[in-house]
Design a binder for these strands. Structure first.
Lengths: 161, 161
DNA sequence: TATTGTTATACTCTATAACTATA
DNA sequence: TATAGTTATAGAGTATAACAATA
């Protein structure tokens, strides 16, 4: 019965304390942290981190028309996106093109390689999410997903402009 | 019609991008971040931050029998709890008592002032949560809360012991 | 004069490792 | 010899402010 651990080995596991699980705000923060931490680890195989994944997803689905717009969508400071996109470009996952109508703007788009990597990252992220939400049945996860998707209508960004 | 903003002024507000809202993992991370950021700001009036609030809640509800146990419950490194509890003690919110059965252990408990502050923090956190989840009806928030509470059965901690 | 991207800097948060004391 | 708490240090992540190019 000395069995190998199946998943990349969640090193220590403790039950969620009552002080957290009995409070909605703390529970949601913890779920987010847990998701981010495990996702980060799982995405390492692809050579990207959670922030890269967010960028790929937003670039693909929302087609921001400038790096500034991308930054706002990600809820991060614009300066962060410079190094972030530099990395994606170096990895051949994204590319910058100057907007011909306004040459101040850099329009960022995914390369085919970037699109493929996003698909693989999505598969990994889905698996991580299912593991994190292991207290719920499949139906409940579906219900939870539907609610989560519509829960937040606006994000407040607290930096530059 | 030049009306004063009611809430402590959520400075900028942008809709959640599709790249995020269409992905469960990213959505949950964003909800957690949003909750943490807004909660942090709202708790400032009480002179505590989100980490303090988590500590107060866990100490009150789970009665950890050492600082180490508290650290594990909070998902943080043990060393962090030293300064954390120092602060709470200085603020008269918590107190350390050496465990008579094992004098290495410090048992942390809340003072009456700490319990009172926790109640006020809970009220604030509930309000913040309601604001963050403004896309859901009251019934949906209740359903979401019930699912969230049971969603995570184990937290993985990735540091010291 | 305002906006986009960039660069450089500083700050916050946290983990890690070494040390003391108790067991 | 192992465990709890403490201290000091270093590293990751991020925002902020100043600057260059374009509008």
């Amino acid at each position: 019965m000395t069995e190998q651990l199946p998943t990349p080995a969640p090193q220590a596991a403790t039950p969620l304390p009552t002080g957290v699980s009995s409070r909605l705000a703390l529970t949601l923060v913890r779920i987010g942290d847990e998701m981010a931490a495990r996702g980060q680890q799982a995405l390492e195989d692809l050579g990207i981190n959670g922030r890269d994944y967010t960028a790929l997803a937003v670039i693909a689905d929302d087609e921001p028309r400038s790096q500034l717009e991308l930054a706002r969508m990600m809820g991060k400071a614009p300066a962060l996106c410079v190094a972030l996109i530099d990395d994606l470009e170096r990895g051949g996952l994204a590319q910058r093109v100057r907007d011909p109508n306004d040459r101040r703007r850099s329009i960022v788009s995914l390369t085919p390689a970037g699109e493929q990597l996003l698909e693989r990252a999505d598969a990994i992220a889905d698996e991580v999410a299912a593991n994190v939400l292991d207290g719920l049945s499949a139906d409940e996860v579906a219900a939870f997903t539907g609610l989560a998707r519509r829960a937040v209508t606006r994000t407040t960004v607290q930096h530059g402009a």
